[in-house]
Structures are given as structure tokens and as C-alpha cells.
Amino acid sequence: GTGDGRGAAKASSDLIAYKNVNDVPPSRELMIQIDQKNEAILLPIYGSMVPFHVATVKSVTSQQDSNKTCYIRIIFNVPGGSFSSHDANALKFQGAIYLKEVSFRSKDPRHISEVVQMIKNLRRQVTTRESERAERAT
């Protein structure tokens, strides 16, 4: 059950990456992956690929140090931000704890810059679609 979604536009909090465990795509390698179709970001955490819907992402940045090691930081939406939908979310899920940020070190700067670009594009796409949907519903 992910809310009844009666009539009104879906809040971004109602977006679901996968319904079933077997819907998660197989991964050949433990690395950050983007699933465009399901609007999900898959993160390697302790040997498992952990999905997050792109609507939970607030921002993504990367940086490279002098040793050619690359870092990527993903910041997620948490209540108290500037988005009103997330304050609605905070009311709906009062008492919840939020994953706010994750940082990864990578051996592959090209892969990281691709990931950053893909997350940004996907996020923009979903945000645009959801705000259009919200407008139509009012």
C-alpha cells in the first residue's frame, strides 16, 4: 500500500522505485547505477545494490583529488527544506528518520561524471513531469 492516491496529484513521497524485489535489475558490478526506466539510483552498500527513487535526491556533486581519486556526494531531501511537498511528507511520516547524505569514493572519474550527469537529467525530467501533473490536478 503506497497511499490511495485518490484524485489528487501524487506527492513525490508516493513515488516508488520498485514494487517487487525481483524488479531490481541485475548488476554485474558493484558500482553506482542509474535505472532510467524505474527512475532509480542504485547504490552499492555493503555488498548490496540499494535503490533510491530519484525524487528523493536533492543534489549531487563530485570532486577529484590530486591522486585521481574521485568522490561523489548525493544529498537527499529531508523535511524543513524549501520544498512544500516535503513538509507534507514530514507530516505524513512524522517521527521518521531520513537518510540525508551518502558519499562514495570511486576509482573511475569518468563513470562518476556520467553518473552525476544522469542523475541530474533524470531528476529534472521527473521534477518537471510531477509539477505538470500537480498543475493539471488543481
Binding site: 558490478e29 561523489i72 540525508k100 558519499s103 562514495f104 569514493r105 570511486s106 573511475d108 563513470h111
Partner: peptide, 27 residues
């Protein structure tokens, strides 16, 4: 950052943070 255990992942978790709103009563 552990390079000794035969890590085979390309991207390794180095940091994570949790936001615990004031409304949370667990902690």
C-alpha cells in the same frame, strides 16, 4: 577506507548521514 580485504567494488561508501527530525521520539 579499507584496501586490505580484497574489495571488489568500484564505488566505496565513505560517509553517510541521517537526519533525525525533532518529531522523532525514538532517539
Amino acid at each position: 577506507v579499507d584496501d586490505t580485504t580484497g574489495a571488489n567494488e568500484k564505488d566505496s561508501l565513505v560517509e553517510m548521514s541521517f537526519h533525525i527530525p525533532n518529531s522523532n521520539t525514538q532517539y
